Simulated scan of single mutants.
Amino acid sequence: METRVDHLVIGGGIIGLSAAWNLARRGQQVLLLERFEPGHSRGASHGATRNMNNAYTEDYYLDLYDEALQLWRELERESGEQLLTLCGLVSQGDPGVISEAHAALTARGAAAELLCAEEAASRWPGMKFEGTVLLNRDAGRIHSATALEVFAALARAHGADIRFGQRVTDLRVTEHGTEVTAVDDSGSPTVFNAASVIVAAGAWSEQLLRGLVELPPLQVTEEHPAHFQIRPQMIEPGGEAWWPSFNRFVPGKEDPQDGAVYGMLTPGEGVKVGFHKVGDEVNPDARRFRGSDLSREALRSYVAEWFPGLDPDTAAEISCTYTSTADGRFVLDRIGAVTVAAGFSGHGFKFAPATGRILADAAMGISFPPDPFRLAAH
């Protein structure tokens, strides 16, 4: 059986769903194919919370953040769901990063300020601080599981066809656009012909684009943050809600993001704490879904040292994938009929509404993505 569509999106994580929403609300005919079930745990978009983090030094990320923040609020108005809790973000660690991020944020009028470690500790006694601390009030956390549901519901409300349980087995470029073959859960294949295809397949991007698009090296790793329970004496009188989101950039590293610590409150589950981009390289179809004993102990020890308000022996481990470029910059580009969205390097979720707009513009031939993300820049 063959089906013809204008735009086909491969991948139903946050990026693919955002692209589908952005296309559908412009009146475009959109079909999205996702290999797994809604909210599945095999990729990078599952779980209840993500950091809404604007501690960046680069204008292209801060521009993307500002646009995404506006679009998150638009999604909240359209859906009636709360998607953001701007409880603040506190960042510490590498003094150069803290200073540069503060300068970049204040230059654009963001609600950012610097605190000494003693003041930060008095505000957030469940956390330990050293050196200068950056507080961003226009930041916090995203209700990520709800966000996936909202994107899917609103894309469908605008006419998008979203199909789960459809594994893409072949992608070809033809003289009329593209030809995509997908197999459903029963093993039945369907061939789709589309004028344009957006590939937002996360850890499976290289498999799908091999021979079509020359991607930069992408490293797929399995990461294992965990939720830790708040000590009872830290819950009253403010309950859980006083916990901000947080970063700690590693001083002395060429890339202070490598091994950085991040996290946020997940209401009802505890405080999520994780190391950034330290996991083992994996085949996304052959994962352990479990951290090594060494990595588990490293995270436990970190929590014991830096979070006096958390019980380090209560870890509830999470497993997710990162698909990372060497410099952490995303890959967003259009090559003929194929638009690529890959290499989000563990920090793409918060930008999703704006990234989806960029992908829709590219797929429709309106404009190319910003230069720092295009293939030639990698």
Rank of each mutant, 00 (worst) to 15 (best):
R4E: 15
L8H: 06
G11P: 03
A20M: 10
G27N: 04
Q28V: 10
V30S: 08
L33M: 01
F36Q: 13
F36Y: 15
H40E: 05
G47S: 09
T49C: 14
A68Y: 04
L69K: 01
G80A: 06
E81N: 09
L83R: 11
L86M: 12
G109F: 04
L114R: 05
G131K: 01
R163P: 00
G165Q: 10
T169P: 08
R172H: 09
V180M: 13
A182I: 11
G187F: 07
F192R: 05
F192M: 08
V199H: 08
S205L: 04
E206C: 09
L209H: 07
L212E: 03
L215Y: 09
L218C: 02
F228E: 05
Q229C: 14
R231D: 08
I235L: 15
S245F: 05
F246E: 05
R248S: 00
K253S: 10
G259L: 11
Y262Q: 12
G263F: 01
T266N: 07
T266A: 14
P267Y: 11
G268P: 04
V278I: 15
V282P: 03
P284A: 12
P284T: 03
D285E: 13
S295F: 14
S295I: 11
R300V: 03
V303R: 03
A304Q: 08
E305A: 03
G309F: 03
S319G: 08
C320W: 01
T325V: 06
R329H: 11
V331S: 06
D333G: 03
V338D: 00
G346Y: 04
L359M: 12
L359P: 06
G365E: 01
H378P: 13
